[in-house]
Simulated assay, not measured.
Amino acid sequence: MTVSGTCVSAFEPVRDLFAAKLESGEEVGACLAVVSGDDMVVDLWGGTADVPSGRVWERDTLANTYSLTKTMTALAVLLLADRGEVDLDAPVARYWPEFGAAGKQNVLVRQVLGHTSGVAGWDANISLSDIYSHEEAAALLAAQEPWWTPGAGSGYHVLTFGTLLGEVVRRVTGSSLGRFFAEELAGPLGADYRIGVTDEAPERFASMVAPSSAAADYSSIPPDSLIRRTLLNPAFAPSIVTDPDFLAAEIGAANGQGNARSVARLASLVSGGGAVGGRAALSRTTLERIFDVQADGVDRVLGVPVRFGLGWALPGAVMPGVPEGRVCWWTGFGGSVVVADLDRDLAVAYVMNKMSPELVGAAKPNEYLAAVYECVGRGR
Rank of each mutant, 00 (worst) to 15 (best):
T2D: 15
S9V: 13
A10G: 02
A10Q: 12
G25L: 04
G25F: 02
G29I: 07
A30F: 07
V35R: 11
M40T: 15
D43W: 12
P52G: 07
G54S: 01
E58Q: 14
R59A: 15
T61C: 06
A63L: 07
A63W: 10
T69Q: 06
T71V: 13
T73M: 10
L79G: 12
L80Q: 13
A81I: 03
D89L: 05
D89V: 05
D89S: 09
P91T: 09
R94N: 08
A101N: 13
G103S: 02
K104S: 06
Q105D: 15
N106A: 14
L113H: 01
A120T: 07
W122S: 04
N125F: 13
I126C: 08
S127N: 10
D130H: 15
Y132R: 11
H134C: 09
L141V: 02
E145A: 15
P146K: 01
W147E: 10
G155W: 04
L159I: 13
L159A: 12
L159T: 03
V168R: 11
L177F: 09
L177G: 09
R179P: 09
A186Q: 05
G187M: 12
L189V: 10
A191T: 10
D199F: 11
E203K: 15
A206V: 05
A206P: 00
A210N: 00
A210D: 06
S212H: 06
S213N: 08
P223L: 12
P223C: 10
L226I: 10
R228G: 00
R229D: 03
R229P: 01
L231F: 15
A235G: 06
A235R: 04
A235D: 07
S239N: 05
I240V: 15
A248N: 04
A248F: 00
A253C: 02
N255F: 00
A260F: 06
R261W: 04
R261M: 01
L266I: 14
S268L: 05
S268F: 03
S268W: 02
G278L: 10
G278A: 07
A280M: 12
L282H: 03
S283R: 08
T285G: 15
L287C: 04
I290F: 05
Q294I: 02
R300H: 09
V301C: 08
L302P: 13
W312P: 01
G316H: 00
E324P: 02
V327F: 04
T331A: 13
G334R: 04
S336E: 11
V339D: 04
A340D: 02
A340I: 01
A347D: 00
V348C: 09
V360H: 05
G361H: 07
A362L: 00
A362D: 12
A363S: 14
K364F: 10
P365S: 14
E367N: 14
Y368T: 11
V372R: 01
Y373W: 04
E374H: 05
E374T: 12
G377A: 13
G377W: 04
R380F: 12
